[in-house]
């Protein structure tokens, strides 16, 4: 997870089945970018909080609030959750992206965070950058035009 209040651009590379979540409080210009890999933290001890959608988002919100962000003002933009390989009959492998997206939605809803834009699913990897001065997220993919959210 990366957080900035100085207006530097935040970037996370090559999101495959992973999800990138931008959380932004425009009033205090505090932005955070989380790169989660799995939907639910089932580790004993829960050490790697930022690897999972549930603990990652909650922990980031906590840290943002400690820096002066207020929950009703925080908005979210999400990208990722692609299916990288079309593998037949391999159980959970193809669904991890989808499960990540669902988990991110669920956690954001439970935490009362507004999801204002997203580009999820599909089968291409994405590089997600977030510019806290404009509040815009840019998504780059291989062989596709950039998307601005």
């Amino acid at each position: 997870m990366k957080m900035t209040q100085a207006g530097n651009e935040l970037i996370t590379y090559a999101l495959g089945s992973c999800c990138g979540i931008c959380l932004f409080d425009p009033n205090v210009r505090l932005a955070a970018l989380i790169h989660i890999m799995l939907p639910l933290n089932m580790e004993t001890g829960r050490k790697n909080t930022m690897k999972y959608a549930d603990t990652g988002i909650r922990e980031t919100l906590k840290q943002m609030e400690a820096k002066g962000a207020r929950r009703p003002r925080i908005v979210a933009k999400v990208a990722g959750g692609a299916k990288m390989f079309a593998v037949s009959g391999s159980g959970s492998l193809g669904n991890i992206g989808q499960r990540n997206i669902e988990s991110v939605h669920k956690v954001l809803r439970a935490e009362n965070i507004r999801l204002i834009a997203e580009d999820v699913g599909g089968s291409v990897a994405r590089t997600l950058s977030f510019d806290p001065t404009t509040g815009k997220a840019t998504i780059k993919s291989y062989g596709k035009p950039d998307i601005v959210l």
Binding site: A14, G16, M84, S123, A125, R126
Partner: peptide, 27 residues
């Protein structure tokens, strides 16, 4: 072995496939 599958994309995302599958166990 399953039927193989090919993809052309960013390496970072290709590598996360085995990572995500066993991510709960190891990095």
């Amino acid at each position: 072995l399953t039927v193989p599958s090919l993809t052309v994309d960013m390496q970072g995302a290709i590598l996360t496939v085995p990572m995500a599958e066993y991510g709960g166990q190891t990095d």
